[in-house]
């Protein structure tokens, strides 16, 4: 029986003890199974192959489950290297969300509030890329609850693309998930969803911010039309 009070003060345990990692994997698998059960989600690789290269998947955002679907259709080897970018203001507000956001999905948590933030979102994303991760990014910045198919993109995608030009930017259209769980509902309706990946973009030499963001928006929107024809 160890005497807790005696001896030198212990070093703090590693940030993610084994049990927690194990639990995170179990929960991750459970979430994926549930996503498949509800949505029978299928990935359509229209413009890129499911190759193991470093990418930023930029997707439309209508539901909290969006990145789960993208994650679910990625081949397992790529899935482990792909981190969603999510708002710290949402995912750090309770112990459960923190566990799901950080441990299960290994999200890059960024602070969206320009005034109050203490860390640089673009810097955090660039750092994750430098560590070899791929990213799932929602350039609309927030969930789209309007009737418009897309909200205007924030400039984050542009800044990140300019800083890490070698990374492929893959437009990723998530179809139907907004009907599965509209904002304010808590029971998901089983409906078939698809995730369509379009041809990769790279920033052109001297391309202006607005031209680049327009091009990215158009690339993503063009997939939404295809999504309707199976």
């Amino acid at each position: 029986m160890a005497d807790v009070s005696a001896g030198p003060t212990e070093t703090p345990p590693p940030a993610r003890p084994r049990q927690q990692r194990f639990l995170a994997r179990v929960v991750g698998t459970g979430v994926l199974l549930f996503a498949h059960f509800i949505t029978a989600v299928r990935g359509k690789w229209d413009g890129v192959a499911p190759d193991d290269e470093q990418r930023i998947y930029f997707a439309n955002h209508a539901s909290h489950g969006d990145f789960v679907l993208v994650w679910a259709v990625l081949p397992p080897r790529m899935r482990r290297k792909t981190r969603p970018v999510a708002g710290a203001d949402y995912w750090l507000t309770s112990a459960l969300r923190r566990f799901i956001g950080r441990d299960v999905f290994n999200a890059v948590l960024i602070e969206r509030d320009r005034v109050a933030r203490t860390s640089d979102p673009i810097g955090l994303m660039a750092q994750a890329l430098d560590e070899g991760a791929s990213l799932i990014l929602f350039p609309e910045g927030t969930r789209n609850v309007t009737d418009a198919p897309l909200l205007p993109f924030k400039s984050g995608l542009y800044h990140l693309a300019r800083m890490r030009r070698h990374v492929s930017l893959v437009p990723t259209w998530i179809d139907n998930l907004n009907r599965v769980m509209p904002k304010g509902e808590f029971v998901p309706i089983p409906l078939i969803c698809t995730v369509t990946f379009g041809a990769a973009l790279h920033m052109g030499e001297g391309e202006s911010k607005q031209a680049f963001l327009d091009r990215a928006e158009a690339a993503l929107l063009s997939l939404s039309v295809k999504a309707d024809t199976p």
Binding site: A40, R179, E185, V187, I189, P190, L191, I192
Partner: peptide
């Protein structure tokens, strides 16, 4: 039945107003 209903409802024009009814149908 579940898989068939999931396919069928996917192709209908249901809206958010049908959410409870649909949840009731499935569950």
């Amino acid at each position: 039945s579940f898989a068939a209903l999931r396919e069928f409802i996917t192709l209908t024009d249901t809206r958010q107003g049908d959410h409870w009814a649909l949840a009731l149908a499935f569950f």
